[in-house]
């Protein structure tokens, strides 16, 4: 096997076949992504959820918070060892949690100097998707990798991505088999 790309002979039919193949694969990806979106778009009605998040070096408990679109989350944040942060992506929320305290300091990064002391923070899960919460207060060696996940269903990026993977596979199989048949004729 030489390994040179040019060693492979072009498919019979040349550019027209390549165009059809590309269209076929692209159609597979688009169809797969659309199917993924449609198939998993149903969620339960919104509700309130009260969640205690415990932060410790270098993880949160629970590590993954899975909710539905429209849910209201009432978060109590507790630091078990040292000072931690809770920066929630996509929600303009940053919290500083001191150990063994019942309250914590909250700010919105869009207004960085406006800190308030709170016992609970409310998050409206109005945007579906995956949002990581990260420690925003240097807490030790693995601090940059201390994170948790808020999954707001329907997680469209995941569903479309998985659907597109499947569509790419199916589309490629279909195109390859069609080429195989036309080559054998």
């Amino acid at each position: 096997m030489t390994g040179a790309a040019a060693d492979v002979e072009p498919a019979p039919g040349g550019g027209r076949h390549t165009l059809f193949a590309a269209l076929g694969v692209a159609a597979g990806v688009a169809l797969g992504a659309a199917l993924g979106l449609v198939a998993f778009d149903q969620t339960e009605p919104p509700r309130d959820r009260h969640i205690v998040v415990r932060a410790r070096q270098y993880a949160y408990d629970p590590p993954v918070i899975r909710v539905n679109r429209g849910d209201r989350l009432f978060l109590k944040l507790v630091a078990l060892d040292v000072m931690h942060g809770f920066f929630l992506e996509g929600h303009d929320l940053d919290v500083e949690i001191a150990p063994q305290q019942s309250t914590f300091k909250v700010r919105h990064p869009s207004r960085p100097d406006d800190w308030t002391e709170q016992e609970e923070v409310v998050v409206i899960a109005d945007t579906p998707g995956k949002f990581r919460f990260r420690c925003s207060h240097t807490c030790g060696s693995l601090h940059p990798f201390m994170s948790g996940e808020l999954i707001v269903e329907p997680n469209r990026v995941l569903h479309a991505g998985l659907g597109a993977c499947g569509g790419l596979f199916v589309g490629s199989v279909a195109v390859a088999r069609r080429r195989s048949r036309s080559a054998s004729r």
Partner: peptide, 28 residues
């Protein structure tokens, strides 16, 4: 990015398969 990686993985492995197995009827 993952989809681009998968696309190249599929297309290039078919190329390898044709180099190994010859005609598409066997390579696919």
């Amino acid at each position: 990015l993952l989809l681009v990686g998968l696309f190249y993985a599929l297309s290039k492995s078919l190329q390898v398969s044709r180099q190994l197995f010859g005609p598409p009827a066997r390579a696919v």
